[in-house]
Design a protein around this nucleic acid. Sequence first.
DNA 1: CGGGATCCCAATGGATACTG
DNA 2: CAGTATCCATTGGGATCCCG
Lengths: 124, 124
Amino acid sequence: MKDPASPVCRTISTLLSRIGDKWSVLVVTTLGEGPRRFNELRREIPAVSQRMLTLTLRNLERDGLVSRAVTPSIPPRVDYALTPLGESLRCPIAALSDWAIANVAEIHEAQRRFDHEHDQAAAA
Amino acid sequence: MKDPASPVCRTISTLLSRIGDKWSVLVVTTLGEGPRRFNELRREIPAVSQRMLTLTLRNLERDGLVSRAVTPSIPPRVDYALTPLGESLRCPIAALSDWAIANVAEIHEAQRRFDHEHDQAAAA
DNA sequence: CGGGATCCCAATGGATACTG
DNA sequence: CAGTATCCATTGGGATCCCG
């Protein structure tokens, strides 16, 4: 199970990278509230650059988590939404962020203590 | 909630980065089976370099997820173990990897279809 | 045994400009 | 509006050598 060459482990690893990348989770949770157009997502996630939003959406689409519907009008219209697969990921993601929210104080205190006990050079 | 400047979001983001980095989850799940010494971990996770294992353990220790116990003998002995906080993370992590395992086939098929529909240049 | 220090390459990601 | 293309800075991470 821990052999990094096994397909299962590589897929999990890929998924974790996707979860860990800077914007995927934010996009998935936003789309979890309902379909969005490209610039709607940009507005709801102000810090994302248009380049990274595009890349993130492409990756999520490739993994089958997000659907992309193009309406070839002038101006063009593209709607993004979670697929059923993407919907099913919301639950484990929520579990993770719930954990994070529940333990943010403890983590911060651990970091503070760690930084204090070692040299206080790396005071993030 | 989506303001990236908010402390909560920054902490979640940090946690997700930790989850998403290449080795943290593997280390946490391995330590979930019981305490391990440094080189035991290296043996159980063959692909990790000693540098990255050190860094990963330091980060996890700083976040309060892993404890580090030094026995100053010759040769030195260092035991790593999950803290209660680290233990509590095993559940959401398991939820995530269960999801990944359950959906690996569907994800692969989505990727295959995506790569096929677009140019087959990026055949990962 | 359990690291730290250094070097170096590859990937991530931001800013900006251009396009259909 | 919804991207694509290019350039560039930062970071991640492997290899190697050294040390207590």
